[in-house]
């Protein structure tokens, strides 16, 4: 893996130490863990009594009550669960845009989210799009131990999903990090990502070059994913048109997110550290 990316993971890890993932209530279920679940479980925290029903664990019968009332009553304890974060990273080449720090920002953001999830006692899985969605090696460990974070795919996340969809944990918190710059209908992908998730957050990570049109003049623009070139003349009109197209794209993703109950925000790679407040605003992170 690229040393720069590795360093970014470390930086993100350090940055993430200040935050914790905000777990929504609906996400308080899952495998047995250290967090109180929303159902009765096997923790030591007493929750309630109820009448014995066949099949109940005989270990939780309150024999004192049976002695006094001759009725079988079981004690209910709060369930302890481990929430889960599914971090979905866009592995296409556009996330590794030449001449920008977009790729390191991806790594930094991913590490930040993973660290903040760990701070919130969440398990985590990091999915990288490519020829299908694959988990990063060592993704359950701390970000600095991750491997093969390579942003070099020529496929869009949508195409990757078609090839091999990720196996998300049920009721996990899912965070999708991408520049969202591909043609297609966002609702379809978002529905799939949202399905079975406690919450879905879409973080659009753009380089400043993506967010602002280039200076006036003639440009031979090269698509980082397809390699297609086009010669265009940038003037105030085309710059305005570019900005309008970007706004339109963001609006379509925003509408789709609203439709699917997802939260969306846009970050600029170059301003990542200063714009983490946006993640708090969408209730993804809270200070640790």
């Amino acid at each position: 893996m690229d040393a720069a990316l590795r360093q970014s993971l470390r930086d993100g890890e350090m940055l993430g130490a200040r935050y914790a993932l905000q777990i929504p209530q609906v996400a308080a279920s899952g495998i047995i863990g250290s967090r109180a679940g929303r159902r009765a479980g096997s923790s030591i925290d007493f929750q309630d009594y109820r009448e014995y029903q066949p099949g109940d664990d005989l270990r939780f019968i309150d024999w004192g009550i049976y002695a006094r009332t001759d009725r079988l009553t079981v004690k209910l304890f709060r369930e302890e669960v481990t929430p889960h974060l599914d971090l979905i990273l866009d592995g296409s080449r556009s996330m590794n845009l030449e001449g920008t720090i977009k790729s390191t920002a991806v790594a930094q953001l991913a590490a930040l989210l993973a660290t903040s999830a760990a701070n919130a006692q969440c398990s985590q899985a990091v999915w990288l799009s490519g020829e299908g969605f694959q988990r990063l090696p060592n993704d359950t460990l701390s970000p600095s131990a991750w491997d093969k974070l390579e942003l070099s795919s020529s496929r869009t996340p949508e195409q990757s999903y078609e090839i091999l969809p990720p196996k998300f944990r049920h009721l996990g918190v899912r965070v999708f990090v991408s520049d969202l710059l591909w043609p297609g209908e966002p609702v379809q992908l978002l529905r799939r990502l949202r399905e079975g998730a406690a919450a879905l957050f879409v973080i659009q990570l753009l380089a400043r070059d993506d967010a602002t049109p280039p200076e006036h003049g003639n440009l031979r623009v090269v698509d980082s994913e397809t390699g297609i070139e086009n010669e265009i003349y940038i003037d105030s009109s085309s710059a305005k048109q570019y900005a309008e197209n970007l706004a339109q794209l963001q609006q379509s993703w925003s509408d789709a997110c609203r439709q699917c109950g997802a939260q969306m925000t846009t970050l600029i790679a170059e301003d990542l550290e200063s714009s983490l407040g946006e993640l708090e605003a969408i209730q993804l992170l809270i200070p640790a």
């Binding site: 520049d179 753009l206 980082s224 085309s238 048109q241 197209n245």
Partner: peptide, 22 residues
């Protein structure tokens, strides 16, 4: 003055109004 500068972009999606069919 009008020589073309080469620039890589994330996608030609946003330049669709300028892009001609291949």
């Amino acid at each position: 003055r009008n020589r073309y500068r080469r620039k890589q972009v994330s996608s030609l999606l946003l330049w669709r109004f300028q892009v001609q069919s291949k």
